[in-house]
């Protein structure tokens, strides 16, 4: 009997390990605004369709890239253009969507339109009262995401043209800007349009009389996949899922524009 058990144990162990190893894993680190705006929906459908489990780590774009560099991820989703030094080192950048950068205020704010000049004045601290841009006589609270996030850097480059940003409140994850603006009556912030779907308590301002849905809206971020070397099989499947008809539908439904 003991001999049979000794004989069977390794077989059972082998069967157990082979069964548990059956599902493949894709380690994905993603910027919070991409996860919220697009990624989670695609991940759910991807897992349902393929026998691949996606291990998601939500962070800022910079951390997502660092995790990829350090071998903790197979694929990173970032909201900035990959610096040339990484491309030279063999990292692959695949831009897949463009997302309008929304300027948001509390839903009770009477302001509907803002100009680029006014945004620059507000976020550089030259204007600190809503009265100065046609609103009520109350202090403006500027709300920004963490200064390490791609959203912050994109805003600084696209809107403020590298001017230093003056701020009252800062959130660790970029998507928490929405909560802060929704809770602060006199708050103003900026966020990826994709992350704004179904969020309540905030209002998107027109910029230079251009609505966020207009093609000639002035501020767009580019969302990209990044891999260390060429994407592995699972990462390639995920990229193709994002490029697929369904992936495009999700991107469009979130107010973003697919690159292809």
């Amino acid at each position: 009997m003991r001999k049979i058990i000794i004989f069977l144990l390794p077989i059972l162990f082998f069967l157990y390990t082979s069964c548990t190893a059956a599902q493949e894993i894709l380690r994905l680190s993603t910027s919070a605004q991409i996860a919220d705006g697009f990624g989670m929906d695609v991940i759910k459908e991807f897992e349902a369709k393929h026998n691949i489990k996606v291990q998601v780590f939500i962070c800022c774009s910079n951390t997502a890239l660092q995790r990829l560099i350090n071998g903790f991820s197979d694929l990173a989703c970032v909201a900035f253009k990959l610096p040339v030094k990484y491309i030279e080192q063999g990292y692959v950048e695949i831009p897949f969507a463009k997302d309008p950068l929304a300027i948001i205020v509390n839903k009770n704010n009477k302001i509907e339109n803002i100009t680029t000049y006014q945004i620059r004045q507000i976020f550089s601290g030259q204007i600190s009262n809503w009265n100065d841009i046609g609103g009520i006589d109350q202090e403006i609270y500027t709300i920004i995401p963490n200064t390490r996030t791609a959203l912050y850097k994109n805003f600084q480059v696209l809107v403020l043209q590298q001017l230093p940003i003056s701020w009252d409140f800062q959130s660790y994850l970029s998507i928490n800007v929405i909560k802060l603006v929704a809770n602060l009556k006199n708050g103003i912030g900026f966020i990826s349009n994709g992350a704004l779907k179904n969020k309540v308590g905030v209002k998107i301002l027109k910029v230079n009389s251009k609505s966020i849905t207009d093609k000639d809206y002035p501020y767009f971020q580019t969302f990209s996949f990044v891999t260390k070397g060429r994407p592995n099989r699972n990462a390639k499947e995920f990229i193709n899922a994002a490029l697929s008809k369904r992936g495009r539908e999700i991107i469009i439904s979130k107010g973003m524009y697919p690159i292809f």
Binding site: I87, E93, R230, P231, L243, F260
Partner: peptide, 21 residues
């Protein structure tokens, strides 16, 4: 000195092919 991504487009669908430096 650039990196390029190649995609195949067929029947309205886009498929990632490879990347070349």
């Amino acid at each position: 000195n650039s990196s390029v991504n190649l995609f195949v487009r067929r029947g309205g669908m886009t498929y990632y092919l490879t990347s070349i430096y």
